[in-house]
Nucleic acid binder design. Sequence first.
DNA 1: TAGATTGTTAATCGATTAACAATC
DNA 2: TAGATTGTTAATCGATTAACAATC
Lengths: 215, 215
Amino acid sequence: MDRENKVSMTVIRRLPKYYRYLGELLNKGINRISSQELSKLTGFTASQIRQDLNNFGGFGQQGYGYNVEELHRQLGKILGLDKDYNTVIAGSGNLGQAVANYKGFEDAGFKVLSLFDKNPKIIGLKIRDVEIRDVDLMEQFIKDNDVEIGIITTPKENAQDIANIFIKSEKIRGIWNFAPADLTVPDNIVVENVHLNESLFTLSYFLKNYDNYNI
Amino acid sequence: MDRENKVSMTVIRRLPKYYRYLGELLNKGINRISSQELSKLTGFTASQIRQDLNNFGGFGQQGYGYNVEELHRQLGKILGLDKDYNTVIAGSGNLGQAVANYKGFEDAGFKVLSLFDKNPKIIGLKIRDVEIRDVDLMEQFIKDNDVEIGIITTPKENAQDIANIFIKSEKIRGIWNFAPADLTVPDNIVVENVHLNESLFTLSYFLKNYDNYNI
DNA sequence: TAGATTGTTAATCGATTAACAATC
DNA sequence: TAGATTGTTAATCGATTAACAATC
């Protein structure tokens, strides 16, 4: 990683898509790809793809292109997918359970150690071997189990309180926030938001303004 | 809406956030806000906020700022939230159920008429008054009920097949896709993706490369 | 009126695209 | 070697920020 000039957010947000397509190519047994072919798959221009990748190093070879397996592994490393992460989920409703069940996450090295909730009716239940515990036990659990990532799937009213517990634990380095609220956290904690409302409203915008965008 | 020069994607993606904060201000009974105050809330610059809003018209007043209620309503209209939408959910696992249960969507005018699945064990169940039906009945259901939005919460293997049913129905105008796959659809259908993997991988990137970004 | 804040133009900054020499 | 395709520089395009006259 180049410490001098940090890579821009627009580039970083494209990396997971490259990674996904390279994984699919790998599964198909394809072991070589050019920026032009990758352009057809991803919809980004070949020029942009080469620019993006060269932020991290010269992974290609003139006249040949890129080795799929090599590039996939390199991108995985760049994205931090070469290690495992312990996570907990705060909020054990449908969304929390959906995240806990999502096979793709475990495959990528994200391990859900426990769910938490404040509803006594569901505390003690198990979701795919993972127990739902009382949220009052969460801070200690995080400390005891070296949990690095906290996932918030509570209603928005409780999101900041949960974030505060994460902060207080002094173990959580990243928060994956599904609540439609902007969290206040110290500088050393990374927050990634999944704001479903905002996504749906964008869809709705394009439905309404369709005529302006397609002809 | 200005038919001449269409508004850029970067602007559109900020609108839901404005809308959310204005809604919160409205609930607090605040009826006036300046671009500078809105800047403090949203994190966008005051200049950018004024630029963004002026894509759609002059909603403010010199020396005063913006009327919260008026701006909130205008943004709702711009985002197409001034009407209701009928939706169906294909894939009735945890994620589909989570979406069906999400109170905020119904409040915003998105009505889930039915869930669908191919698993006989869950067909017939009800999620909050909404029945899970056999996916084989989906196309006809969409036609019979004027469904405009199709939501895909199936595994990625089935996502394109579901999209094809949506297309075939000739009623669906927008697809909200939660499967980690890029769908192929005709030009007249809008697709909005929620790629949870990509979001999580971005978080993971920043955890790994934290040192380059803070200090 | 005086003060505040918009709407809008101009300047800057950053991201994308084009082009091509390097080289496998 | 000839052809293909990268890595990288330069040109273009678009988005953000700064500045300020207009005006409530």
